[in-house]
Design a protein around this nucleic acid. Structure first.
Lengths: 208, 208
DNA sequence: TAGATTGTTAATCGATTAACAATC
DNA sequence: TAGATTGTTAATCGATTAACAATC
């Protein structure tokens, strides 16, 4: 597997998986890049180029086997196995993420929440317990945690991110409105909801 | 204002605003593209190119006035005025968005939530009432609603989106895991949290 | 075998970066 | 005026699309 796949290609992989999943649900066995391009509203060329960055998954004259391609992309993305997660910050957003069962269905299992509000500690969301911030380190070490989901106020983000990164977390899913620059050992994916909402606002202006 | 600004440029505007806001908070009056490029980790060239798509906001030999640039970008994005929003789907995510005060601070005011669960109707989140789905149309008409925030299950997304689009909503902020293709009158911005989480997962694989 | 469709190379298009004349 | 820094044009780089030979 090449190591220099562009961000654009990577960001399209989950979308391919989504559409292949729904083809699979409809018991469709094979699909050509042309058919798929019609459904997904992209060019067939792009689909073939994207997939061939990872290997030749198709067959001339036939197309792609839906199930096989689905499995291959799952493997590439890494959703063929479980990821243990913790949520740091048990506010509205943190609790919403904990309550959202869709992530779990994809193998992203939330094992605990953390907060420093005494009133929250000891409570649970969907059976997932809320612990005090001071027990994060031990929990990470003992429970094979991959991903820290950061839903704390922006001001606290940088310190906590650096702390968990140094404790061996492999990734941070950052919901705070702060750009984190953590060393290369720990990958960061930003959600930046406010940026997304502002992009929407710009498009309203333009359109109106 | 040109109408053919690329998506890439638009997606950078909120980030510029964020950094300019924090410079403003530090009472910094002027900044050059070079200084800003250092802080934001982009090229000075890109900053100047991006800004000049909208007009000449700087001054040779001086740079940019922080407050003025902040105001100009606010105007371009459309966060110089209020947007009335409704949230459709009062599950965990819908309630989390309603509870998140940061959007309100930026002028995105949530006026109501809607759900078809009888047990939820009549309740409130942070003082914002939950109504039945059947009252959406009237509420939109009577309250000058711009933006519908869609936090319903994926299966219900398409129908609801088309309904509110036809009733004059100008934008849909789509949290469901479905690609909506609505006619051009109504703009759509997707959040697709699961896609974001999968991108993170890919990067863990690559890194590990 | 003939038809279909991939994998892959080449052409095009667009975005980013570099350079510099204009000008405050 | 001299120095600094923009606005903008030109050069480069990368991503997307088109084309087609390979092959199932």
């Amino acid at each position: 597997m090449d190591n220099n796949i562009s961000k654009q290609v990577i960001s399209r992989l989950p979308r391919y998986l989504r559409y292949l999943g729904s083809l699979k649900d409809k018991n469709i066995e094979r699909i050509s890049s042309r058919e798929l391009s019609g459904i997904m509203n992209v060019t067939a060329s792009q689909i073939r180029q994207d997939l061939n960055q990872f290997g030749g998954f198709g067959q001339q004259g036939y197309g792609y086997n839906v199930e096989k391609l689905y499995d291959e992309i799952s493997k590439i993305i890494g959703v063929d196995h479980i990821h243990n997660c913790i949520i740091i910050g048990a506010g509205n957003l943190g609790k919403a993420v904990a309550g959202y069962t869709e992530f779990e269905r994809r193998g992203f299992i939330v094992q605990a929440l953390f907060d420093n509000n005494e009133n929250k500690i000891g409570n649970a969301v969907r059976g997932i317990k809320i612990y005090g911030m001071d027990s994060i380190s031990d929990f990470i070490a003992q429970n094979d945690i991959d991903i820290a989901i950061l839903t704390v106020p922006s001001a606290a983000a940088k310190d906590i991110a650096e702390k968990v990164a140094s404790e061996g977390i492999s990734a941070i899913w950052n919901f705070t409105n702060t750009d984190l620059d953590i060393d290369a050992e720990c990958v960061v994916e930003n959600v930046h909801l406010l940026d997304s909402l502002m992009t929407l606002s710009y498009n309203i202006e333009k359109n109106g």
